[in-house]
Design a protein around this nucleic acid. Structure first.
Lengths: 333, 333
DNA sequence: TTGAAAGCGCTAACAG
DNA sequence: CTGTTAGCGCTTTCAA
């Protein structure tokens, strides 16, 4: 691999001059520039980013920490982050945590200022303590939850309100026995969505029935299907279910069908995330749709601001969401 | 940020000794080790990976280039690659190309030996020429397609055989007018799957009807739904459809339903990729299931072998696949 | 305008 | 066992 020095030698000039040409700095004597360019081409010189960054004190990378890329929501989000990051000449490093505290903490701690220029983290189980202890010394932005009282930039949607909106919709369409799937005290997301669920019930004067609250460890189809099956076989048949993400919801729809219930006639189901599939499933899924593009953009912008030395209070930015009303609650088909 | 030197100063030893302790090298006098460890703790020392890698001539990163992370198949695959890479102390950098030649080429060219130690690429539209011109000088492994005759390690499934298997299954279950959705001459994947489709038809002595071949530019639900709608409204009603990925298939199922056709009674549908959703949709989707974990593992292993200096002929590794027979072709429910 | 030289933080010879 | 020292490839004063 050709280095600056090689090029300089070949062109018969100093490293500085070559560096100047490469970086388009101050005026270089045309004659020299020509020779440098020739040497550059002849050697096929490619700058060593590692060395350059060492010198400049930046890395050219930002990290993105998500539970699992195999969850379509995070796949979609990650895609958006990569796109947004490219606009600031950043490449994106992705780490997975399974939404568990230990991997989240370890990953956080491993994020040195020498690896990445900043990190976007989507923590589920992290505690305040983990932050204070393992602050990686780089700009950080939290994506999604904000149950933690830590002085870090945050971007997300109003989870409590979103959950309340979803449940309210079920109530407005006449449902009364509304179950929830996804309860999980170790997940920040779950806690907030539970709160919204309870608020909506309270608001409508409906009873809170513990037997209609189904926990879920992971948030895959399987978990939704199992939770739904359990509700149905234990005789706690709801007339609607609010699921904490779309995968749980699709699993629940399937389980309901397998048990002979028709969605939405017998049971209405609403999800959360509006992943691409939900507009095409049978029935299509009513769900909360966060503006994922804005989420990704904003997160990257926040990192950029801090990386450029932006100081001041941590920001907390709310991104809009909408409720997509589809067949799983109003049964158009 | 504390450096080795700071630690050495504080511990009253040389940098070398600190480096030895940090890297667990040769025996260090216990007394010194203790002092070093104290200093390490006191300063909260974190090695500067950039500098270390500069010295070692490695970067600690591998790149993964995929069309879109928002396609669940690639999300699942990327998750597997990240997991496998971690076992070799690599972090994974993800780049998206939209399956288009230009971004693929640009990304390939930008992959210097100083950015990453290797790259796993899942090219769709790249041509041989692009490789010879923009070879990044790092270990490369192609994931998925292998239409190109370039001397690069490759891991994938036998696409032609897989496609043939899928179509054969349709024929065996009595289908005769078998359409295909996803044809696209610029995509390597599509070309191979078309070949398998044709082989299966020929094998069974079925006619090849051009009007049953529906192209698709992108491979999302939308594209599948549109292609299906077009087939149906133009009067080319098939009794089965082979879709080049699961998203197209789900879109097609939905469009069929919207036009009043029942899957699989009127039209059987088979997909490709076996993304998580396909086991839970209504109807669940018959699809080709590549062993994604093996795919990811093997790709990383190939990079590792080359990065460790492994020479020799480019390898071409075939990963097994199975045909998951589900409701969309045999209608259990 | 260009060259020489220092140094980013680290590792690896090479002495001691 | 440990210290000294020379770079890895690059950018950046500082002089010339």
């Amino acid at each position: 691999m050709a280095t600056l020095k090689d090029v300089a030698l070949l062109a018969g000039v100093s490293v500085k001059t070559v560096s100047n040409v490469v970086n388009g700095y101050s005026f270089v004597k045309p004659e020299n520039e020509r020779r440098v360019r020739e040497a550059l081409a002849a050697t096929g010189y490619q700058p060593n980013l590692g060395a350059r960054n060492l010198r400049r004190g930046r890395t050219g990378f930002i990290a993105l920490m998500v539970p699992e890329l195999s969850i379509p929501y995070f796949g979609e989000l990650a895609g958006g982050v990569i796109t947004a990051a490219h606009e600031h000449d950043w490449s994106v490093l992705i780490e997975q945590t399974q939404g568990q505290r230990d991997p989240e903490r370890t990953t956080l701690a491993s994020l040195g200022p020498h690896m990445v220029d900043g990190a976007i983290i989507s923590p589920e189980a992290l505690e305040k303590d983990d932050f204070t202890r393992h602050a990686p010394g780089i700009p950080l932005v939290m994506l999604g939850e904000h149950a933690l009282d830590v002085p870090i930039d945050h971007v997300g949607i109003d989870n409590v309100l979103a959950a309340r909106t979803a449940v309210r919709h079920l109530i407005e369409t006449g449902r009364r026995r509304i179950a929830v799937i996804g309860q999980n005290p170790t997940r920040g997301t779950a806690t907030q969505r539970m709160a919204g669920y309870r608020e909506a019930l309270a608001e409508a004067g409906l009873p809170q029935s513990p037997e209609l609250i189904a926990p879920a460890n992971r948030y895959h189809h399987k978990d939704g299907a199992e939770a739904m099956a359990q509700l149905l076989t234990q005789g706690h048949v709801p007339d609607a279910v609010f699921c904490f993400n779309d995968m749980l919801a699709h699993g629940a729809v399937r389980a309901a069908a397998e048990h002979g219930y028709v969605v939405p006639r017998d049971i209405a189901i609403v999800g959360f995330d509006n992943t691409e599939h939900s507009a095409y499933s049978l029935p299509s899924l009513t769900t909360i749709a966060p503006d994922k593009t804005a989420l990704a953009q904003t997160a990257v912008d926040l990192i950029r601001d801090r990386a450029n030395g932006g100081a001041g209070e941590p920001k907390d930015i709310q991104i809009p969401f909408t409720l997509k009303i589809r067949e799983s609650t109003v049964g158009a088909r």
